[in-house]
Design a protein around this nucleic acid. Structure first.
Length: 775
RNA sequence: GGGUCCGUAGUCCAGUGGUUAAGACGCUACCCUUACAAGGUAGAGAUCGGUGGUUCAAAUCCGCCCGGACCCACCA
């Protein structure tokens, strides 16, 4: 009995860490800029270092980054030079809020300089925690000069440079208009950052007075906005109010008259059929103010308090004002009814605070002009999961207003802009380096408009999507490495991301690339589904409804997690993270290990001149498997690969072929030894992108060097006997079942057994395997 | 209200017109058989959401209904 070269009886996840060390020493995953090979740039999502000390990542995120690593490894094994930078998104209000919660102070209290320093420290700490987990996964991204952080001077400079380009194209303008304002984060936020919470609220019926003294009831959920009411709408066909069209009606408390206007927006069946339009109760108000050209009255300020326009309510918070005004209306008999109604209130995605629509000056990027072009470019980009293109198109269709790109944050890329102190003219200088206008001298001599010599720096910063929407350009080398840009942009770039950020990251990137380069942003888009928890709910950091991913890896190994992720669902579909099923994947890895262990007992041989029939059969099955894997890998879909390889290893190679070939193998039949090693070697390559540790361990122990320098096996010319698989497996099962029914051991003689005619070629091996006499 | 997708065993997930519906997890029984008991062998478990139609033939195509997920709009 020969000794196996793989001595351990099981695959041990501890080997993963040793291998990762080797990979690092051998610099396996570098990027060679001067390569002759085809380059693939992986525009992968810079991770945002949020979460908590205990749980910097949820299991779904961890799977996402492992999926992306599979894309990189697959491409390398297809002979590509892969640029796959490790990257962090480190700008914006999320980190500011974390610092505020920890220190209890905001940037005005600590000073902006100090606050930014605290943000940076916090980010560095979070980054370390994330890296601990990433390194334990053995992700094959590049660090060193290829790592990037969106808050680095280099990256922020590019954000500012591209802003300058947009400015020069005339796409940036300042406007005073209602914005989604988060009173807690103290900044305007984009439409995509607004979430809606279901709930019930009180609908108050309030008496308004007609000129003839008659009273009409109007229902509202926002009575504190009475002071900002500028019109009352009724449906044009509502017969109750036809004679009132064009009349004036008097607002209670303020005794101010506003017109009654017929408008389709008013529904006959809701409330009393009469509705008051205020600046601004909701998005519909904004639309109608614009449509009817009404004069807005500012009732709520940025501190979430009532303004002097609300009279005696000045200084109260919105909630206090609502309570007080309801009390006052009751006292005066003007409140006739209160009922509960269902609605959704808009809240800040980052902190959950109710947002208000407050008019303010912000910088806008024209996006509405480009919506048709976005759809056009989307058609040029190959969506590897076509089902997700719909989400992008639907979102594009729903965009109605331009993108407010300025924010009132502290830790973010500064808007590189100065105002002339004399004439207030805004100036964006040539971007020669990264500028911080709130603390730096302007790189400007004099105002081009009035010749003024003194300037004031802009204090506002950019929405973080302004940074991340140029990630593909940054990585491809825009304005930094024109040669790489030339070679890769846009066709050789693949965008990899989750379906949760289609409306933001994907949409904004496509928009910016049209505006800056009039190009599609990348050749391909690859979108994965979301990891759900065991109940099927989306995992969210704010809810904390997920398990800690670290023990999952420690106990099962990252290869088990990855194999699980690959075999669980087609790329693009959501999947439930299940510990039980990860353990199942680990069992398969053990099976693979032991299969390799068996093969490792035998010497490798040259290809003999004659291959025996049974060996031809398994080689033909292997060929079929390779082809099926090729189909999966061509779309970076690991699902068919994992499932087909697992099925082949467990249900064909191990259960049938190994049993059939054992006798010949022990006798050192050259055809058997050659086939055993050929099949093993190819199947570990087939799943090397999915399970990079165990396959590399086997490869290093049995063959030469790392598997991660090898190419993916290619299909060879048709081998024989593929059509006999079913018959062969059925025959074996029937013999096993007979022996079991007769209560005899598998090695006992199989009596009354005859080999079917089609299986004649395998006769000798079958006779040995089942111990068939008299054949 | 408009749209997209989905519904296959206790669970997950293949199968897009053609014998008996694939596989995995879990479950049951037997077996330490010399690669593997974190294993092997055998087995139970599905009227393919319901219903009507097209067809020689439907899990698969079409209509309607039920259930679920997501997106958009609306929510005075």
């Amino acid at each position: 009995m020969p000794k196996p070269r793989l001595t351990e009886k099981r695959w041990k996840p501890e080997h993963e860490v040793e291998l990762q060390k080797k990979w690092k020493e051998e610099k396996l995953y570098g990027f060679n800029e001067d390569t002759e090979k085809e380059i693939l740039v992986i525009d992968n999502p810079p991770i945002y270092p949020s979460g908590s000390k205990e749980l910097p990542l949820n299991p779904g995120q961890l799977v996402s980054y492992n999926y992306i690593d599979m894309v990189a490894r697959t491409s390398r094994m297809h002979g590509k030079e892969v640029l796959y930078p490790h990257c962090f998104d480190r700008n914006g209000i999320k980190i500011e809020r974390m610092v505020k919660n920890e220190t209890g102070k905001n940037s005005r209290e600590t000073g902006r300089e100090e606050f930014n320093r605290l943000c940076e420290e916090k980010l560095d700490r979070m980054e370390k925690l994330i890296n601990e987990v990433f390194y334990r996964c053995g992700l094959s991204f590049q660090e060193g000069k290829h790592i990037y952080r969106t808050d680095s001077e280099d990256y922020r400079k590019l954000t500012q440079q591209t802003f300058k380009e947009l400015w020069d194209h005339g796409l940036i303008y300042e406007d005073h208009r209602p914005n989604n304002w988060c009173p807690n984060c103290r900044t305007a936020i984009a439409e995509a950052e607004v979430e809606y919470k279901e709930g019930s609220t009180t609908l108050n019926h309030i008496k308004f007075k007609l000129p003839d003294g008659e009273e009409k009831e109007i229902a509202t959920t926002r009575p504190e906005l009475l002071a900002a009411c500028q019109a009352v709408l009724v449906h044009p066909d509502d017969e109750r109010y036809t004679q009132l069209h064009g009349e004036n009606i008097e607002i209670p408390i303020y005794n101010r008259k506003v017109p009654i206007i017929p408008h389709h927006y008013a529904e006959k069946d809701f409330g009393t059929g009469m509705l008051m339009i205020c600046s601004y109760g909701d998005k519909a108000d904004v639309k109608i103010f614009r449509e009817l050209n009404l004069d807005p009255i500012e009732a709520i300020n940025k501190e979430n308090r009532m303004t002097q326009r609300t009279g005696s309510y000045e200084g109260l918070t919105v909630e206090e004002a609502r309570e007080t005004i309801i009390k006052n209306l009751k006292e005066e008999g003007l409140l006739t009814k209160q009922e509960q109604t269902h609605h959704r209130k808009p809240v800040c995605e980052a902190c959950g605070t109710r947002i208000e629509l407050i008019p303010m000056k912000e910088w806008y990027l024209n996006q509405t002009k480009f919506l048709n072009q976005i759809k056009g470019k989307a058609d040029e980009i190959e969506f590897l999961q076509p089902q997700h293109k719909r989400t992008l198109l639907d979102w594009t269709e729903s965009v109605t207003i331009d993108w407010a790109v300025s924010r009132r944050g502290a830790y973010a890329t500064e808007i590189p802009l100065w105002y002339c102190l004399k004439c207030n003219h805004p100036i964006v200088p040539e971007i020669k380096r990264y500028y911080r206008p709130w603390k730096e001298e302007p790189p400007i001599e004099e105002c081009p408009k009035c010749g003024g010599k003194e300037f004031k720096g802009e204090e506002k910063v950019f929405d973080t999507w302004m940074d991340s929407s140029i990630s593909n350009l940054y990585v491809a080398g825009y304005r930094r490495n024109e040669e790489r840009m030339e070679k890769t942009y846009p066709e050789k770039i693949i965008r990899v991301q989750g379906r949760d950020i289609i409306r933001t990251w994907l949409y904004y990137t496509i928009l910016k690339n049209i505006q800056l380069k009039d190009q599609k942003a990348f050749g391909k888009v690859w979108i994965h589904g979301m990891g759900l928890n065991e109940k099927g709910e989306a995992m969210s950091k704010s809810k904390g409804n997920f398990p800690d991913p670290k023990p999952l890896i420690e106990q099962n190994g990252v290869d088990a997690l990855r194999f699980y992720a690959a075999e669980e669902a087609n790329i693009g579909e959501d999947y439930r993270v299940s510990e039980e099923r990860i353990k199942g994947a680990k069992k398969f890895l053990t099976k693979l290990w032991n299969t390799a262990r068996f093969v490792s007992m035998f010497e490798q041989t040259e290809k003999p001149s004659e291959i025996k029939e049974t060996d031809k059969w398994i080689l033909s099955e292997l060929n079929r498997l390779i082809q099926e894997c090729e189909e999966g890998y061509s779309r970076y879909n690991f699902f068919p690969v994992a499932n087909k390889v697992k099925n082949f290893v467990q249900n064909q190679f191990a259960s049938h072929y190994l049993e059939m070939v054992k006798k010949r193998a022990y006798e050192e039949d050259q055809s058997a030894l050659y086939t055993l090693h050929t099949v093993l070697r190819k199947i570990i390559k087939l799943i090397a992108p999915i399970a990079p540790h165990i396959t590399d361990k086997i490869h290093r122990e049995l063959y030469e060097g790392s598997i991660h320098r090898e190419m993916m096996p290619k299909k060879e010319k048709e081998a024989e006997h593929g059509e006999l698989t079913e018959t062969l497996m059925e025959f074996n099962h029937s013999v096993w079942k007979n022996k079991k029914d007769q209560g005899i051991a598998l090695k006992e003689e199989a009596k009354d057994t005859s080999i079917p005619k089609e299986l004649e070629p395998f006769k000798e091996d079958l006779v040995q395997m089942h111990n068939i006499k008299g054949e």
